[in-house]
């Protein structure tokens, strides 16, 4: 018998709230849609592959929007593609999350000024939960962004809307500058 089994047989009952169980189940198997647009898609593939191994977080790309919880918008969204992105988003079942990966899908990236055919930010067409900056973001940043999505799911409860959960997440998150300063002081001392 394993430790877990021993623990359960000792107390004989598992106590938690429904919210926690649901959230735990949801965040432990986030299935993103395998949907690459541009350069960031290669970094997304690299994150899925051997060295970064996203599967250890239960994240594995699915080919169909109907089977996925999360949309990683990896790359430049163009005007021609925007309508397809909307359609794909609408095909995903609720609850669904959107992670905007890379500067292009955040705000147009290097194409913001003269890119006549580039959509300046995917949040003009679909709601975005987490933005990951970078051109392209390193796999570590993408994993960081996915952790944020998991935190967001943890914040959700029955009766708490997505907007409120996002607000709570923003309050909880710390300013990176403070962390850097703190680390610097530790190093100096």
């Amino acid at each position: 018998m394993g430790l877990l089994d021993a623990g359960i047989s000792k107390h004989n009952v598992v106590i938690t709230s429904v919210d926690n169980v649901l959230n735990w189940a949801r965040l432990s198997s986030l299935w993103p849609m395998g949907f690459g647009l541009a350069c960031c898609a290669i970094e997304m593939m690299a994150t899925n592959a051997s060295n970064y191994d996203l599967e250890r977080f239960g994240i594995f790309p699915r080919s169909s929007p109907r089977q996925s919880d999360l949309m990683i918008v990896a790359g430049t969204v163009t005007m021609k593609m925007a309508e397809r992105v909307i359609r794909l988003y609408e095909q995903m079942p609720e609850p669904r999350y959107v992670l905007s990966m890379g500067s292009c899908s955040n705000c147009g990236g290097p194409y913001w000024e003269h890119g006549y055919h580039v959509l300046k930010g995917v949040d003009r067409v679909i709601p975005v939960d987490v933005y990951v900056p970078g051109c392209p973001p390193r796999p570590e940043s993408l994993i960081g962004g996915l952790m944020k999505i998991q935190e967001l799911i943890r914040m959700e409860q029955i009766g708490i809307s997505r907007a409120e959960a996002l607000k709570k997440l923003a309050e909880k998150s710390s300013d990176p500058q403070q962390v850097i300063e703190r680390d610097r002081q530790v190093v100096r001392a």
Partner: peptide, 26 residues
Amino acid sequence: PEDWEGFPLRKDYKVQESYHGIKVPY
């Protein structure tokens, strides 16, 4: 796209304001 207005690489090209209801300029 098929219904794009204008020819982008002409020197006097002006980008359109919106495409299918989506704002084009930044």
